[in-house]
Design a binder for these strands. Sequence first.
DNA 1: ACCTGAACACCGTTCAAGT
DNA 2: ACCTGAACACCGTTCAAGT
Lengths: 237, 237
Amino acid sequence: VPASTTGQESPRKRRARGSISAEEILQGAYDLVSEASLDALSMPRLAQRLGVGVTSIYWYYRSKDDLLDALAGRAMSEFVEEFTVPDDLSWDDHIRAFFHNYRRLFLEDATWSDLIALRASYTSDSRRLAARRIDRMLQILVSAGFPAEVAMSAYQSLSMFTEGSIAMARGAAARGRAGSAETGTPSDPELQVLPLLARPHPWSWGEDEDFAFGLENAIRGLRALLAQLSADGSGAA
Amino acid sequence: VPASTTGQESPRKRRARGSISAEEILQGAYDLVSEASLDALSMPRLAQRLGVGVTSIYWYYRSKDDLLDALAGRAMSEFVEEFTVPDDLSWDDHIRAFFHNYRRLFLEDATWSDLIALRASYTSDSRRLAARRIDRMLQILVSAGFPAEVAMSAYQSLSMFTEGSIAMARGAAARGRAGSAETGTPSDPELQVLPLLARPHPWSWGEDEDFAFGLENAIRGLRALLAQLSADGSGAA
DNA sequence: ACCTGAACACCGTTCAAGT
DNA sequence: ACCTGAACACCGTTCAAGT
């Protein structure tokens, strides 16, 4: 018995051949995640939002995983484009600006940085753009007197540090819901130096300050290394 | 028509009242994940393995999330117990041993460290044990002349660094499957310093070396800070 | 108090069509 | 070439019982 008079529960007409596109699907997925969350993205929900049969999506993306990869690429592009570092900074100020911005950008938008963290898929465009930024930092370090391999390792290890800092900050934020029975303070008499350690979440404290400390300390280490290298280079008297 | 003669597809008798326990379920889940993977852990599969009705699990764990928390706690306990640092090391050797061991332990067992990374749930026992290890390191740093707050921040930032290094190493490993169209080398003429950067996966290279570099650099930074602090303390001539 | 199957509301994906 | 619904094999979880 097909309903004919009132348009209630209209069963959605078949769409024309060229009426969907990979881009439209990707945009729909992006909007859906933006408005709701990553968990809210399911193939049926996305299809319904687009006014399309569920299976139609599979003509453009072989699987949900495929779609998520494309989505991560798109999000990554946005991050890369938003990311800037001022010109004409000394090498240490450049490092400071670079990694503070990096961290801030990812912490600002939890949803998308989660997706990126799990996939890390660059578009070739955004990869090239990111590479240019990194190359600029490497140039500055090399100009300051660091050998190229050292500059590269410095960048890499500072990335590790920043990524870890982001992950820990996000983890600490997610753990707002404290586990029921675990909130009591043990107050272990063996802990001698810092009673801080006896508290329930001792090592998720002062994320920002600890990140700043670690970054400054790394810069201090690099400065010492630079002095050491130039001392070696000018002959040991 | 109930099958009576041959025991084919025996429908599993109802189990007695005290025959299951939270511990048995947890152990079953642990074994299942160990033998297969984290993805293989579903409530039906676990129930079947235990010879229990699916819903029986829900009497002991309110949800799968609950069960995963308990599982993460158990895995964390094992990590904490396996983790040791030799006695009588200088402060920098202690740091080196501590974080190299930390990293190695997590990289050795991808399955469990994934689970822990997403949950980070300590048992109160393992928290106390971990706190004792950390406290020992802080004591050593304080003995070496670092103020307690500096020692704490040093520990925290080195943890961030190590966590990030673990995450990046695991991400690089997971990305063995290279994305189809993205493998070509762009060879951007703007890249001046390092042609390394034009390669497909430039910043997932030499994980171990970069970690070692970053750790040494942090230690160098701490050494410089220590010298600076003691110089300030003994009066500026 | 403990254990249970049936049932619900979802998934992602395949297939055999329709146009 | 593109779009589709029906169907499959799974999920996690709830409920109303059984003992």
